[in-house]
């Protein structure tokens, strides 16, 4: 036991001594949370709009006023021909032009369509503002996220990504570094059991991950004001399972990689990128082609993020996420067994 504790202390020292890494490890969640919470939004806002009208009559004026008043649009100029408006879009001075027809027989919307998604939204919004249905038949309700904050969507995603990065990358590098420097030889020959080496390697990163998890949860409820809807206990339990899974992945990488360089590239490029892209972290899984959906079926963070979104944001009970929980536990068990089996007790 004493051996084990001193091993853990040694690992902790490695982590704590590397000031820059520490700074990044703790700075990253904070900066990411702030970015996603405040800076990154898909909102339609400040769309540079040109108004095209030959003669400004009363109704047109009203429509333009409504446009100007909405936070979606900023009127940059009023011109008299569609040609001029188009030229403004082409020279990147405007995003949208609204050509008002005479006698209010509708309007034409000229839009910079390079981003079809945004273009769609701009025109939909503009149509609504211009049409101004006097009696609204429709009421809209945005469930769970009434103020349309992207943070609601991204907090679980950041958790999924950072926990994976810290656990998988840091663990694998710390083991491979011992191999590369030759200290692993001594550790293996020492009386300490190989299993203990692994556990001792993993414990500090587990703690680190828990600290960062707490940090993210605290930040999300205080600074970003994303309410924690579900039960904190289950959130922690699920996160623990996920952390274990990430640690086993790190272990597996360390078995394959012989040099830190390879371990780093594998965790950063081969592991992290698909995770970010295919797990539904940033891009919804449903809009991917079927093959990619299959691939995403085997990507563990997908289930974690899915479950977290439900638990944290939607506040459903754990019975609604049992499927994700079972899958995560299964994957963890599988990875753990494989990586322990593959851990070399000889050179």
């Amino acid at each position: 036991m004493r051996q084990f504790i001193s091993f853990v202390i040694k690992e902790m020292r490695h982590i704590l001594r590397d000031k820059r890494t520490m700074l990044i490890l703790f700075g990253m969640p904070i900066v990411l949370m702030l970015l996603f919470g405040f800076a990154i939004t898909n909102d339609v806002k400040n769309v540079r709009t040109v108004v095209v009208t030959s003669q400004m009559d009363h109704l047109t004026q009203q429509a333009v006023d409504r446009l100007a008043a909405s936070e979606y649009f900023t009127i940059v100029k009023a011109v008299s021909t569609p040609k001029e408006a188009e030229w403004m879009i082409r020279s990147q001075k405007a995003d949208l032009a609204i050509v008002f027809a005479l006698k209010h027989q509708g309007a034409q919307f000229i839009v910079d369509g390079s981003d079809p998604n945004m273009a769609q939204q701009w025109t939909t919004y503009a149509q609504q503002v211009v049409a101004n249905p006097s009696v609204s038949l429709i009421s809209q309700k945005l469930l769970y996220n009434p103020r349309m904050k992207s943070a609601y969507n991204f907090v679980p995603a950041i958790m999924g990504m950072l926990l994976l990065l810290i656990c998988a990358m840091m663990t694998s590098v710390s083991i491979v570094r011992e191999k590369e420097r030759g200290t692993m030889e001594v550790l293996l020959v020492s009386p300490i059991k190989p299993l203990m080496i692994i556990v001792a390697k993993v414990v500090p990163y587990l703690l680190l991950a828990l600290v960062i998890l707490t940090m993210i949860l605290l930040m999300s409820s205080t600074v970003l004001q994303v309410p924690l809807q579900g039960s904190l206990g289950w959130i922690l339990v699920l996160s623990l399972i996920y952390i274990l899974l990430a640690l086993s992945l790190g272990l597996l990488i360390s078995n394959i990689a012989q040099t830190q360089f390879v371990a780093l590239l594998v965790s950063a490029m081969v592991l992290l990128l698909p995770t970010v892209m295919l797990s539904g972290m940033l891009f919804p899984v449903e809009s991917m082609p079927t093959i990619l959906q299959w691939i995403s079926d085997v990507i563990p963070p997908r289930y974690y993020i899915q479950a977290m979104r439900k638990l944290m944001i939607m506040g459903v009970g754990v019975q609604e996420v049992w499927r994700e929980v079972v899958i995560l536990i299964g994957m963890t068990a599988l990875l753990l067994v494989v990586s322990l089996k593959k851990f070399k007790t000889r050179l």
Partner: peptide, 20 residues
């Protein structure tokens, strides 16, 4: 190879404990 980021004493203590 020693642990470069540990001090001399820490290295020695670690290996001593490791060997029981």
């Amino acid at each position: 190879s020693l642990y470069q980021d540990l001090t001399v004493e820490e290295n020695l203590k670690f290996f001593a404990t490791l060997f029981g």
